Amino acid sequence: MLADTTGPISNADLAQFAEFQEFRKRSRKRTPTKAATDPTAQPITEPEEADTPEDIIDATVATVHSALAAEILDRVMQLSPKSFEKLVLRVLSAMQYGTSGHVESTGDSADAGIDGVISQDPLGLDRIYVQAKRYARDRTVGRPAMQAFVGALQGQQADRGVFIATCDFTRDALDYADRVGVRIIPVNGIELAELMLKHRVGVQTNYVATLLRLDEDFYDSL
C-alpha cells in the first residue's frame, strides 16, 4: 500500500482487503461505549479521504480502543468479587494513588462497606476509602448503596471515597453523593475500562507504528 498509494491511505483504499472489511464488521457489533450511551460524549468520526495519516491513525486507534473497552468490561465481569476488588486497587495504584504511602485491601476485615484504603503518605494520615462492586451490567447503583457507603465513610471519620462499579449510577445516587458532606467520586463500568486502557492495566501493546518526517535542521546544517 505504501509503495502503490500516493498521499494518505484512506478507508476506501483499505476496503479492498477482506481483513479490513471484517475488522469494520467486528467493530460495529461491539457493545455501545460511553460515546453511544452518553449524550454529552463526543462521537467517534470515521476518517475522511482528505485526512492526514496522523488523523487516520488517531481515528483507527480510537475505534480499536472503543471496541477494546467493551471487551475489557466483558472480561472484568468474569472475575470473582474478590478478584474485582484486587483489580480496582491495581488500577488506583497505576494511577499513582498511594505512591508515597500504600494501597491495601480491607475485604477480609471488619470494615463493612469498605473494600480498600489508599494511604497517600507513609504515616497514613491522608486516606481515601474505596468501595468496589461487581454488579450485572444492566443493574444500577441506587441511592441506598450510596448512602451505605457514606455511612461506612462516616464510621471511619473519613471525608473522601471512591465508589467503583461495573454498572451505571442512578441520578438519585449521584445527586445524593454531590450533596453529602464527604467527597465521593463515582466510577462506572465504562469509565473503569477507559482508565484501564489509559494506564495500561490488563492490556498489552499489540502494534506500534513510527511516522517519520523531513528533518529540516539536518539539511540546514549541510
Results as ranks from 00 to 15, higher is better:
residue 170 T to E: 06
residue 210 T to Y: 05
residue 211 L to Y: 07
residue 71 E to C: 12
residue 118 I to C: 06
residue 154 Q to E: 14
residue 138 D to T: 11
residue 37 T to S: 10
residue 145 A to T: 01
residue 162 V to L: 07
residue 131 Q to F: 02
residue 167 C to A: 09
residue 128 I to Y: 06
residue 79 L to N: 02
residue 97 Y to V: 04
residue 6 T to M: 06
residue 181 G to I: 05
residue 72 I to W: 02
residue 84 F to A: 00
residue 47 P to S: 02
residue 57 I to H: 01
residue 64 V to T: 09
residue 70 A to S: 15
residue 100 S to C: 09
residue 162 V to K: 01
residue 166 T to I: 04
residue 42 Q to H: 12
residue 163 F to L: 07
residue 94 A to D: 09
residue 77 M to C: 07
residue 188 N to Q: 08
residue 222 L to F: 15
residue 18 A to Q: 10
residue 8 P to C: 00
residue 35 A to G: 08
residue 100 S to K: 15
residue 143 R to E: 14
residue 97 Y to L: 14
residue 157 Q to N: 15
residue 178 D to G: 13
residue 110 A to D: 09
residue 31 T to S: 08
residue 2 L to G: 09
residue 69 A to I: 10
residue 108 D to A: 15
residue 142 G to A: 07
residue 128 I to D: 04
residue 12 A to R: 12
residue 212 L to A: 08
residue 152 A to I: 06
residue 113 G to R: 00
residue 115 D to G: 02
residue 9 I to Y: 01
residue 63 T to Q: 12
residue 92 L to R: 04
residue 187 V to N: 04
residue 74 D to G: 08
residue 54 E to W: 08
residue 92 L to S: 04
residue 198 K to C: 09
residue 113 G to I: 00
residue 6 T to C: 05
residue 76 V to G: 02
residue 91 V to Y: 04
residue 107 G to V: 05
residue 152 A to P: 10
residue 131 Q to W: 01
residue 72 I to P: 02
residue 65 H to I: 03
residue 114 I to W: 01
residue 89 L to D: 01
residue 81 P to V: 00
residue 25 K to P: 01
residue 115 D to L: 03
residue 200 R to A: 11
residue 29 K to Q: 14
residue 92 L to H: 04
residue 48 E to K: 15
residue 40 T to R: 15
residue 139 R to V: 07
residue 181 G to W: 07
residue 103 V to Y: 08
residue 65 H to D: 14
residue 75 R to N: 13
residue 40 T to Y: 13
residue 59 A to F: 12
residue 73 L to S: 03
residue 106 T to V: 10
residue 8 P to Y: 00
residue 86 K to F: 07
